[in-house]
Every structure is written in structure tokens, then in C-alpha cells.
Design a binder for these strands. Structure first.
Ligand SMILES: [Mn+2]
Ligand SMILES: [Mn+2]
Ligand SMILES: [Mn+2]
Ligand SMILES: [Mn+2]
Lengths: 217, 217
DNA sequence: GTTGATATTTAGGTTACCCTAATATATAAA
DNA sequence: TTTATATATTAGGGTAACCTAAATATCAAC
């Protein structure tokens, strides 16, 4: 498996490909790649047994594809923990580093690294590390867009995609922050939040709020 | 730069391409790749400014090529230290892991890793980590084949190429061991050693002994 | 100085991963 | 139900990194 193919599997998992069909366009967007390239790659992933592909509909991961993706995500998150905890990297810097390291990590190395880090439960962005907890978290967490108006919640996880992390940093949002959704404007695609700690008003786009997960306090 | 090209530069350095012309065949052997592929790659490395290539003669690294190779080797050796010291890997297992990790390591990551490891001087195979010390070591060390008969020496460094490491392990040789060359048979390509610690007789091929460096005690 | 062994290059081909332009399909609107 | 729009596929092309087979260059031995 090449780093390229591995990244396709990972993205597929992150876009819900474990349970639903993911349209090519979403993959193309996330990887900044042209749609024909995605079509081509999906056919190749089908041939290798990682994916089930329905033309014009989208792709779903097979069981093997799901397992492979979860192993990759585990490696990615383990490296992020190492980079932050031991090497003193900033939370917003580690994702691109881990994006590379994940592909150069044997199962043996991942296991030893996990033990060395004393079996952390979450990565610095709140993502679960154990492959079982990963599915659970994926099924249980609520998107910020689905939070009830006026009810305070805690940010539990940020989808760690480079552009998103910068967006959230620019809006002063962090894992663990308490926020309350105070307004929703679907026309302007806006979500208004009250930040629990600073009591400041924050406005973010609803489209992007989909990548923020929250839990009830 | 692709991992592939990076490995070519590194091999070139390891084969003495900093000071001498390295023939294509040696590169082809070390990388287990066909000679035409090497020719092709050398032309590509020339175009990128890493290498000076004389057809039918061989390749030398430019200053830029040398610097790049040394940075890569530093990353490689830092990872080996980490894998052995912190993750408990065996010395003979770490080379293939580092061979991958080196290509996924930013300058920032290498610097932080080096500080975290408390600036180690040598990798587990005795290779220098600082890029200055690296050249010095390359120029100063003596090949085991050049050691004087009957004079005890200490093994200071093993060229960490996968097949070689296994050969040396099979012959019970390790960094730090004292050995005395007791015989040399050029016809049979054999070198007879007396192992200082166990007092056992060891026979290794002269060809392979070239990859063992020793220092006087 | 010719010969022969070895090393190297040239020629031609493959697969992986990317692209744009043109065409076809699906779906939402009129 | 036609039409418009978004999405997806097909067609055709490019570069990187590999290969084998055949041609050519180098160099040491005779
Ligand atoms: Mn990440
Ligand atoms: Mn990646
Ligand atoms: Mn090594
Ligand atoms: Mn390598």
C-alpha cells in the first residue's frame, strides 16, 4: 500500500464511509484532487478489496478497508500525542507531521509507541486512539450544528484537517471549551456561539461547524 | 524530493560520493535496482543540481547534494537512537524502520527529537549524528581489512545496511567488541579474527569486512 | 593492437498517480 | 415533463520510477 492509497482510505473513513456511501466530490475536495482521479482510484481500491463502489453513487469501505483505515488513524493519533507531549509541538502544528509519519509506521512500532506513551485515550484534537473506542466515538458524538439552542455543551473533538484547525484557532476555539449556541442563521450559513470562559460572542459558518463535535455537560 | 530520490543521495554519500566518483553498478547493487534505472536517475539528479555525473565514469555529490544527504543520515540515526533507547527495539531491528521514518521528518521535528534525546553523539551502529562529526568520522575511521595483524582493535562502527547487520549478528560481532586480526587469506577472501571477550575464532569474508570500521585501543 | 569481459547506455515498455476537456448521468427546478 | 445544474465518467495525456533486451563503451589481458 502506498501513502497515497492509505490517505484515500483514511479520508473515506473520516467522511463516514464505514456506514454510508461517500460521493466522489467530497473525497476530491478533502484531498484537493480532481474528480476523475478519484474515480480512477476508487476502481483501483475496489480491485484491491478495500472499497465497494457504485458508479454515480459513491464508495463504502469493506470490513478490510475499515480495519486498515482505523489502524492508520491510530498511528496518526499516537504520533500526535508523542509530538505534543514529548517534543513540545503546538497542537495546531502536529497534524501535517503525523500525516506523513503514519505511513512510515510498522505495527510493531505503533504498539511500542503506544506503550511508551502509556496508552493515551485521545489525540490532542480529542480523537479516540483505540480502534474500538474510535467507532464508538464516531457513532456517539454530536455535531455542533445539532446542539440545542441555549444549552451549554463542551467541545470534545475537532476534525483535524489542516485548514479546519487553522480556522478554529483563528476563532479561539479549543478542545474542552464550553460553548452555548445562541443563534442559527441558515441563510447566511452562520452559527452564533457564546464562549463559556471568555463570555465573548463567536460566529462561525455552519458548514464548518459540522467538523466540531460536542458533548453534553 | 521523493523518498526514492532521497535514498539515492544517501547511498551516494555512503559509497563515498562526497569525495570520489561512484560507479553506477555500486548504486544498483546497494539499492537492488537495475543499472538502466540508475543511469536514468542520475540524469534526473543532475538536472536538480544534487549530483555531477560523468557518463561511463560515475557520480559525485555536489555541495548541495552532500548537505542534503547528511541531513537525511542525521534524521535516520536520530530515529534509531529513539527506537532503541526509548521504545526498546533491538539494535538489529531499527534500521529498516529508520529507513522509512527519515523521509517523513521535517527539520523542525529532527531538531526537537535531537534535543529530546539529549543530543546523542552516535547511532546504535556507531555512526556520528552531528553533520560535522559525520564527515570527520568518514575520513578518520579505518576499515577492518586495513587493521594490522596481531594488534587488537575495537569495533567502532558497522555500516547499517540490512543484509550486513544480519551477517554481523550471525557472526556475533557488536559495536565495542575488541578483536584481533589473526589471519588474512585473499585467495579465499577470508579474514580470521580472535574475539577479545569470548576468545573464539571468527571467520568473515574480506569483502564484507570492508563495512566494519575499527579504532585503535 | 586486437580481443573479451564488464559496465553502461539506449530503446522500448509498464504501472501508479496525477491532469484537462469533453461527454454523460442524476437530480432539482420550472 | 422538460430544462438547468451539479456531479461523475470517459478520453487522452504527462511524469516518475521501475523493468528487459539489445547495442555500445571501457579497460585489462593477450
Ligand atoms: Mn491529525
Ligand atoms: Mn497521510
Ligand atoms: Mn541505519
Ligand atoms: Mn530511506
Amino acid at each position: 500500500m502506498s501513502p497515497t492509497k492509505e490517505d484515500y482510505l483514511k479520508i473515506l473513513f473520516e467522511l463516514g464511509g464505514r456506514t454510508e456511501q461517500v460521493p466522489n466530490k467530497e473525497i476530491a475536495n478533502r484531498l484537493s484532487i480532481s474528480p476523475p482521479t478519484v474515480t480512477e482510484m476508487m476502481n483501483s481500491l475496489v480491485k484491491a478489496g478495500w472499497v465497494v463502489y457504485t458508479p454515480y453513487k459513491g464508495s463504502k469501505l469493506t470490513q478490510e478497508g475499515t480495519d486498515y483505515a482505523k489502524k492508520l488513524i491510530r498511528k496518526h493519533r499516537l504520533w500526535e500525542v508523542f509530538l505534543v507531549k514529548h517534543l513540545g509541538f503546538n497542537i495546531n502544528e502536529v497534524h501535517p507531521e503525523a500525516e506523513l509519519l503514519e505511513h512510515s509506521t510498522s505495527a510493531e512500532l505503533a504498539d511500542r509507541l503506544e506503550a511508551y506513551l502509556e496508552f493515551p485515550e485521545y489525540c490532542p484534537h480529542g480523537g479516540a486512539i483505540s480502534t474500538d473506542l474510535m467507532e464508538e466515538q464516531e457513532d456517539m458524538t454530536v455535531h455542533l450544528t445539532e446542539a440545542v439552542l441555549g444549552v451549554p455543551v463542551r467541545i470534545s473533538r475537532i476534525v483535524d484537517e489542516d485548514r479546519l484547525l487553522r480556522y478554529f484557532e483563528n476563532h479561539d476555539l479549543k478542545i474542552g471549551d464550553r460553548v452555548t449556541v445562541t443563534g442559527r442563521d441558515s441563510g447566511l450559513d452562520l452559527l452564533t456561539l457564546n464562549h463559556g470562559t471568555t463570555d465573548k460572542e463567536i460566529q462561525i459558518s455552519q458548514t464548518i461547524a459540522q467538523y466540531l463535535f460536542v458533548e453534553h455537560i
